[in-house]
Design a binder for these strands. Structure first.
Lengths: 344, 344
DNA sequence: TTTAGCACTCCGTTCGCCTGAGTGCTAATC
DNA sequence: GATTAGCACTCAGGCGAACGGAGTGCTAAA
């Protein structure tokens, strides 16, 4: 980068100030900051340079400057420092950690809720999923004639159910027998392998059962992590707080986008396996989110990254604080899950 | 009621017109309607009367009239007629009916989604729950040492899971054994009775297991219908479409209210067991919904009402159409569930 | 290289004006 | 007695002019 230290300092001050105030930053306020011993005119010159270099933008001629996505990128990479959490925040988060364990679903929802309450943004938490998920139990429960409920339990600690057709002549006893066989034979096998093995090893025995085996395997595989593609979402309404979406029309589009959990899932997924990662404005690749940033954190069970949580807010969010919160939460969630689910 | 037939006709015309246009209705447009052979002056007099009686309101002196909640109530009780569904709507809804069966969760989500897409309002669908739900299967799956996942399957066709502590010395075998005993002994028992019976009948056998039995029973009971208090929600962003919420601040409050699924659940629940029921504006008892109406429909499994679905929109929604859609959907959902889950 | 000074730009707000829709009332008509 | 035509009055919403303020770029001096 061709930014001299003074330019860097000024850019950083602008980003900090803009995040704080939300209003375009003028040369005057910066020159009043005692840490700069420069006149506003000098700063104006530097700001003009920074604009030429693509770090700043001007909403209109007689306004101050606002940081560009490029500036935010530089900021989060090199300049940002984590901010300390307030006592209140820590209180909320540690209360959450100690709350009594209820099923995984509830933990995820609660995590999202805490995240959105503390940051005042929209929080997303992906269900844990991992290609190393292992089968704990499979149960086929007969429903109406010709139908059965498939319940799959993995070591990620949650049951996932769906309905499949079964041959009419298969009674409760046989379904139960099959359940027991599969549960025992494939206990602790990785989910990604179970399907293949079942096709090979049980194909003969069940060959006169029509598509039953195929259907069953497909059902099990479409839920590879037993939780595929499921996310908890909280605080969508916080989106309306920030002025970029005071335009009702945009607000609608945004909410509609957020409601599509599939695409939200993809956004989380795209963040990759980094502990903390940022996607800023245009980097998100969705027009409607061009004024938003997504900060994500990966949580682990034991040492294995199994899921991602994230916060979507305006590009001008206080990254330092958001990072601190996410880091705290990803560790908390990790240890909750690890204690609960680790291989025993 | 002290409304003569002419007043009724006028009131009805006003409601119809206002629902259609969204703008306060003046005497002139009504007098132009050829079905009234009255001058605008006459109609004005009648409108003044209707206002005195509380059926109409005037946003300001020189505006037309809009219907009050009282008028809408009269309208839905006595005047409204169901409107026919368009071909497109029927196409969407019947496609939904024939879609391949996936777990109950998916069916509920899809129902809500179809409802909100067709009505362009916010749709709520309560999971089926019934005090007559019967146990199909119980499975305790060991997790980390001292923890187990409780999976309960009822005839409502869905598994519900949560985690409980178990005595450390109970191994996988014993958990499995207990699962089998409970599943067999209480197969097809009503969920509301299972807890009591377990306490009585298994108390002795498990008395040296600490709070295990109590915990287990509690877990099973907090999910009486296996789906207690769960709802699917779709189209919340549609709320932003109507002008009453073009004020961003109100929009936020509204969305926050909608996000609280508990209170949404209560609103559905409060609707009672009627096939179709209306709650208009102030009748909803929540300030933030004072410009909204909730139309609900109860769906059945077999002959038993097990859940409610509803649509929230502005008080000036086209009730006739919404009712037709809800009626269609409640029957569709009912038959989907009945086919799938009926006692065999 | 930095700074002071100045003319200029442009946004957002405020204010007054005007228009159009709709009313209530009165007096005439059926 | 019910209905209607006519008229004066009211008020919300839209439009444009005027204005103040914040901030800039440029020039010339330090």
């Amino acid at each position: 980068m061709d930014l001299n230290p003074r330019k860097l300092r000024i850019l950083r001050a602008i980003v900090d100030e803009y995040i704080l105030s939300g209003a375009p930053v003028g040369s005057k306020v910066l020159s009043q900051n005692p840490s700069f011993k420069l006149s506003s005119a000098t700063i104006r010159n530097e700001m003009a340079d920074l604009e030429d270099l693509g770090y700043l933008e001007q909403p209109h001629t007689s306004a101050g400057r606002i940081p560009s996505d490029k500036a935010y990128r530089l900021y989060v990479n090199n300049m940002m420092q984590r901010s300390n959490l307030t006592e209140d925040e820590i209180k909320v988060m540690s209360a959450y950690c100690q709350s009594k364990v209820k099923g995984l679903d509830a933990v995820m929802r609660e995590t999202a809720s805490v995240l959105s309450r503390i940051t005042h943004y929209t929080a997303l938490v992906m269900m844990p999923e991992s290609s190393t998920n292992r089968l704990r139990h499979l149960q086929l429960v007969p429903l109406a004639e010709g139908y059965a409920l498939v319940v799959v339990v993995t070591d990620a600690g949650v049951a996932r159910d769906s309905v499949i057709r079964v041959p009419v002549e298969m009674g409760a006893d046989e379904l139960d027998r099959i359940s027991r066989i599969i549960s025992q034979r494939y206990y602790n096998c990785r989910m990604i392998e179970v399907g293949d093995r079942m096709m090979k090893e049980l194909g003969g025995e069940l060959q006169d059962r029509g598509t039953f085996l195929t259907d069953l395997v497909e059902t099990m595989e479409t839920a590879p992590g037993a939780n595929a593609h499921r996310i908890a979402l909280s605080g969508a309404n916080n989106m309306l707080d920030f002025p970029a979406y005071s335009d009702i029309d945009r607000a609608r589009q945004l909410l509609a986008a957020v409601e599509k959990k599939d695409s939200m899932y993809q956004m989380l997924k795209n963040a990759g396996p980094f502990e903390i990662s940022f996607r800023i404005g245009s980097e998100l690749g969705e027009d409607i989110f061009s004024d938003c940033s997504l900060v994500t954190a990966t949580y682990r069970i034991g040492n294995m990254p199994v899921g991602t949580m994230g916060v979507i807010g305006p590009t001008r969010m206080p990254y330092g604080k958001v990072v601190s919160v996410l880091d705290y939460m990803r560790k908390s969630l990790g240890s909750i899950l690890t204690n609960l689910l680790e291989e025993d």
